[in-house]
């Protein structure tokens, strides 16, 4: 399957305020730049809302907004993120993603070719995930009041499992699995944004996670909880779950995979990879006796190659995450007070 976005010829046209007016210009924008990439019967109907067939199983619903700068970065772009991000939120409930909406807020002056590239990328990402982009909206804001493109997607999926996957299911003795190395997305975006150049180029890990989750379920793994790692990185996801679940986690730093490029960039900038953003990684809480089979399932999917067991849920009732470093020393993980700021020297 080819998921590259085709590069249209540069027409030199740009988004104008009129493109958001609902009139002729709006129609042309949708017809030329958006609809060709969201090709399905719902879009073709041209209604304000999409009427969807009845679903079997529980319905799962989520939404997310995407505001990344730059719009295109090594390994991905805002369109792909907008699809995968919402698909992943659905997948973390164990749901099979079915439908997405797409709301665009465009900044006056955005080249139409850029919009077309992003929409083409969204369409390709949706095809890869087997979801349909069934409804949407477009608004235009004045130049200087946006960052090119903001995208909101909402998603609907269905659950077929008889058990629920949620923080409340986390049990003492559960093992915490991490689906691959961390920090690629945040460092790839930062490197591109700041014009930092590294010998080995960093690629975002941006990827859909519904398939590996489905594979785990198909293999009979009793997943207790899932969480995708996004802003705030692995550390923030762990802390949030420990608090929500009311449990204590013990995590071994030496078992958390990071690639050399991410480690090198973080060392140089004084950042902690545990707090760097990811867009294609998750943690799974599974019973200890299913760890080996779960890891074998994850290893068989290219998106989750390099998965590792990184820690356990202790019997302690303090809602905290203890990180044990390679020297055997323990400390608590916690949320960052704000943005992670690079150090001086």
């Amino acid at each position: 399957m080819n998921i590259d976005c085709p590069l249209p010829a540069d027409t030199g046209e740009i988004v104008r305020l009129g493109h958001g007016s609902g009139g002729e210009l709006s129609q042309r924008l949708l017809r030329d730049c958006v609809f060709p990439h969201f090709n399905n019967s719902w879009i073709a109907q041209g209604h304000d809302s999409a009427t969807l067939p009845p679903a079997t199983g529980q319905v799962v619903f989520t939404t997310d907004s995407f505001v990344v700068t730059p719009l295109f970065f090594p390994g991905g772009d805002i369109g792909r993120l907008a699809v995968y991000g919402t698909v992943n939120d659905l997948a973390m409930s164990g749901a099979r993603p079915l439908y997405l909406s797409c709301s665009l807020i465009l900044e006056e002056g955005l080249p139409l070719d850029t919009l077309t590239r992003v929409m083409s990328s969204m369409g390709a990402a949706a095809t890869r995930c087997g979801v349909q982009l069934v409804t949407g909206d477009t608004k235009v804001v004045e130049r200087g009041k946006g960052d090119g493109i903001y995208i909101n997607t909402a998603g609907i999926g269905v659950l077929h499992e008889s058990f629920t996957i949620e923080p409340g299911q986390i049990r003492p003795g559960d093992v915490i699995l991490l689906s691959g190395d961390i920090g690629r997305h945040g460092m790839a975006v930062m490197a591109r944004r700041e014009g930092l150049e590294f010998d080995s180029p960093l690629q975002s890990d941006c990827a859909p996670l519904h398939r590996p989750v489905q594979n785990l379920l198909d293999a009979g793994i009793s997943i207790h909880c899932l969480r995708d790692l996004t802003r705030g990185g692995l550390a923030t996801a762990l802390v949030e779950l420990a608090e929500t679940a009311g449990r204590e986690f013990l995590v071994r730093e030496a078992d958390i995979p990071t690639c050399d490029a991410v480690r090198g960039a973080c060392e140089m900038l004084g950042l902690d990879p545990l707090y760097v953003a990811n867009e294609g990684r998750f943690i799974a809480f599974v019973p200890a006796d299913q760890v080996e089979s779960a890891l074998a399932v994850l290893e068989s999917d290219p998106v989750t190659v390099g998965s590792r067991a990184i820690g356990t849920v202790t019997g302690g009732d303090r809602q905290q995450v203890i990180l044990q470093n390679a020297l055997g020393c323990e400390r608590l993980l916690h949320r960052l007070p704000g943005e992670q700021l690079p150090r001086i020297c």
Binding site: Q320, L332, I344
Partner: peptide, 17 residues
């Protein structure tokens, strides 16, 4: 505040609250 400040180190890497 600083990533080189002693208090930030003690707080950030604390072993208990």
């Amino acid at each position: 505040v600083s990533s080189e400040g002693a208090c930030a180190a003690y707080y950030g890497y604390r072993r208990q609250e």
